[in-house]
Simulated scan of single mutants.
Amino acid sequence: MKNRTKNPSSIFRSAIFSMLLIIAFSFQSCDTEIPPTDTDPPNFSLKITGEGFDHIFNQDDDFSSFELNLTEDALYDFIFSASDPDGLKSAQMQFPGDHFEIETDLPTTWISRFNNGISTSVTWRGDVNNPVTGAILNGKFRVSGDNLAFGLLLDVRDYGGEAGTSNQTFAELNIDVGQQDTEIHYYSE
């Protein structure tokens, strides 16, 4: 078992994340107006903690350069947030429903749907008549399967201005599940 003491930089990152989370919570209820044009894509962050792991993924990460190793049957905490100052249209997580299970009751603003027996999607949809700048989903999830790999899809869209052509931020977090430590594995290692 690895010694997982917190160093000063991880304490600083946790403090910064806590401040960002407070700001993000204020975004969730912050009304906005959709401008005539919007060419800037929305942002997202996904924080995962558990099994000695604590990391925030966001739209600036190079998701093709690493995978997230998760421990089979372990319980993890997560916070998925999405934001756009000109109005958030939707935020979605999609995953294989038989190997990734959210073990938290969803708020009424988030809808879970099983898609053709292949995947589950958890979606938040904005209201064009009452646009807000962000949405947050937090809870717990568990993964099952040994030597199993899949992608956790993250899809965030804005209104794209009054023209209605959405800007999209999309990422696929590659996940490997097994009897292993929870860590990020970079493909160059």
Rank of each mutant, 00 (worst) to 15 (best):
T39L: 15
M19H: 14
I34S: 10
F100Q: 01
S81R: 14
Q28N: 05
A163T: 08
G117H: 00
M1R: 07
G164Y: 04
T37Q: 11
T109D: 13
I184K: 07
L70W: 03
I48K: 05
D176Q: 15
E189P: 01
Q28E: 13
T165E: 13
E33I: 14
T49F: 10
Q168K: 08
K89W: 07
L75K: 13
S90P: 00
R13N: 11
I48F: 08
S90A: 14
I34M: 08
I118C: 07
G164S: 03
P85I: 07
E101M: 11
N116H: 13
D146M: 10
S112G: 09
A74I: 01
D105S: 14
G145L: 00
D84A: 12
I184S: 10
S64I: 05
D127W: 00
D40Y: 08
N7R: 13
Q94I: 13
P107I: 04
L173K: 04
D77E: 09
I48Y: 06
L173A: 04
L137A: 11
Q94W: 05
I56A: 06
D60Q: 09
P107G: 03
D73H: 12
S121E: 15
K140I: 01
E51N: 12
S64N: 10
G151R: 02
A163K: 12
Q179G: 07
T39F: 15
D40F: 10
F25H: 12
L70F: 04
P131M: 01
E162F: 03
V156W: 02
T169C: 15
D61V: 00
Q92L: 10
I34R: 06
I175M: 05
I48W: 03
G97C: 01
Y187E: 02
P35C: 12
L46R: 00
S112C: 10
D98P: 00
D105T: 11
S144E: 00
F78P: 08
N167A: 03
T120M: 01
I118S: 10
I175L: 04
P42L: 13
P96L: 04
T108F: 10
T108A: 14
T32V: 15
T182V: 05
T123H: 01
P131Y: 00
G87K: 02
M93D: 05
I11F: 11
G126V: 01
D77L: 10
T169G: 11
G160M: 06
E51C: 13
F27K: 14
T49V: 13
G97M: 00
A163I: 09
F170Y: 06
M93S: 06
I102A: 04
D31M: 05
E162H: 02
I111W: 02
T5V: 07
F114M: 06
T32Y: 09
Y76L: 02
F53Q: 01
L21Q: 12
M1L: 12
G52V: 04
W110S: 02
D176K: 14
G178M: 03
G160T: 08
